[in-house]
């Protein structure tokens, strides 16, 4: 039982505290790990998006994407998600200068915007099912739901994560948490960037050459 190191004086304790954060590169462990995870996640979404592209135009029966995808609705939801990235940046800036009030405000709004995006996605999925696009219907359905569903799951985890930080800020000390928020921000921005790719490749490119 080494809680028995009771005789430790405070000075000593602080020295050791700094020692614990030793890093060969000077970048914190959490940040290195998040960048590595995002590299891995690139392959994750890369596989999903390539599958969609490879199966594009291969559905044997309708409804086809050009009949159901709605650019106006998804433009609105994409805008909301992009704005949440701005709010995320504001949260990180606020926690860096230890402005807890602003941090709470921005992180709360970030998760609300994320939740609004998820609302749009539920609306979109419901619409599509009503129009006959299901996972079982055709290749478009299988690939579309698997890909956007995985992205939605990432957003949902992000919303949950950021909202937990909002709650935590009321009863926990945010003093040494700037790195954690920054790392959560990296994740959130990445999820947004993936959506930009999905929106471009799956939604916009579909309508190239199609007259309104």
């Amino acid at each position: 039982m080494s809680h028995a190191a009771a005789a430790v004086d405070h000075q000593h304790h602080h020295e050791e505290h700094h020692h614990e954060e030793y890093s060969y590169t000077g970048v914190t462990n959490k940040k290195v790990m998040m960048w590595a995870f995002l590299a891995s996640d690139c392959m994750f979404f890369g596989t999903l998006i390539s599958t969609y592209i490879i199966y594009h135009g291969k559905s044997l029966t309708g409804p086809y994407p050009v009949e159901v995808l709605s650019i106006p609705v998804t433009t609105a939801s994409s805008f909301v998600l992009l704005m949440s990235s701005l709010l995320m940046a504001l949260s990180v800036a606020a926690v860096n200068r230890q402005d807890i009030f602003q941090f709470r405000l921005w992180i709360f709004l970030t998760s609300v915007f994320g939740a609004i995006f998820l609302g749009f996605q539920s609306y979109e999925f419901t619409e599509f099912v009503l129009k006959g696009v299901t996972v079982q219907q055709n290749l478009f359905g299988s690939t579309f739901y698997t890909m956007t569903g995985t992205h939605g799951l990432h957003v949902a985890i992000g919303v949950f994560w950021l909202f937990s930080w909002f709650v935590y800020s009321f009863f926990g000390n945010m003093k040494d948490k700037a790195v954690d928020i920054e790392v959560a921000g990296l994740y959130w921005h990445f999820v947004d960037i993936v959506w930009i790719v999905i929106f471009t490749v799956i939604y916009l490119v579909e309508f190239v050459g199609v007259k309104a």
């Binding site: 599958t51 490879i54 199966y55 291969k58 559905s59 044997l60 029966t61 996972v135 079982q136 055709n138 290749l139 359905g141 299988s142 690939t143 739901y145 698997t146």
Partner: peptide, 20 residues
């Protein structure tokens, strides 16, 4: 994808629906 095919009836590898 295989799980989606097996558990939820998706068509990723279902040749009769165009899967490869």
């Amino acid at each position: 994808q295989l799980m989606m095919d097996r558990m939820f009836g998706a068509n990723f590898f279902n040749v009769s629906k165009g899967g490869m």
